[in-house]
Design a protein around this nucleic acid. Sequence first.
DNA 1: TCTTGACCTTACAGTTGCTGGAAGAATTAA
DNA 2: TTAATTCTTCCAGCAACTGTAAGGTCAAGA
Lengths: 139, 139
Amino acid sequence: MHISTASKISGLPVKTVRYYADIGLVSAPCRSEAGYRIYDDAAVRKLAFVRRARQFGFSIDECRELIGLYEDQRRSSADVKRIATNRLAEIARKQLELKSLHDELEHLVNACKGDHRPDCPIIDSLGNRQNPIESDPAP
Amino acid sequence: MHISTASKISGLPVKTVRYYADIGLVSAPCRSEAGYRIYDDAAVRKLAFVRRARQFGFSIDECRELIGLYEDQRRSSADVKRIATNRLAEIARKQLELKSLHDELEHLVNACKGDHRPDCPIIDSLGNRQNPIESDPAP
DNA sequence: TCTTGACCTTACAGTTGCTGGAAGAATTAA
DNA sequence: TTAATTCTTCCAGCAACTGTAAGGTCAAGA
């Protein structure tokens, strides 16, 4: 099948399919005489695999590693679990970060009257906070 | 003060301070005879303001808007609240996204034995289904 | 047969928000 | 005076694509 079909089935944009071939992540198994990329079911499955992994936030390099394991019938599940567990920890870290961000900003938004007057705790907080290095503001 | 001092006080790397000047976000008020950027307290406060806003995840364009409001003594707090509320909604959206990602991946990691054998629910899930969120079995 | 139009190719530029490095001028310390 | 530091500009590169230009291929219709 041509690249547009592979694109539709895998759920990836044509541009991205071509990009993944360029960087050697998932290549078309062969070319037509005119130079068109020809994909088969196995390649399309790999593309969809990568799409899913990317949705999970795995980096391209991690996808490379996962594709390797995906293709390796002798892999141990421990190898896969290790990568996924790292990813899980990273997601949890980001969740914490977002939560504190959210709480702080929500506090500011709630404190702001949101009227026509210039007094605004949000601006005040952004402007008046002390920086982390020199905590001695100018007089 | 020179750029390195402004950098230390504002908490931004020198490179970033120069970058913010290049893109017209926060410029040095003047230059020395030798062409060095000379910063004053007001400019440094703006740099620190942007640093805080960036920590909150405001984009450079949003920072531009916020700096405009920061400098405008006649702004209404409603203008600021609108931007911050949008940002808050965006953060909440990302939190939800991360949560479903986390739950799903955690489920897979728990289901994986992590031993020397090749059977791995993580790989299976990435490869064998169109979409594990809507657990539609393949036809 | 010619032409239209959909589809394919490569190559390069742009996105965001910086960061690193090179080459050279200015300042400061020893 | 010399060496080290700090400053300047400009160019390249990061991730992971996306957009655009210029052109080749292929099937179908007038």
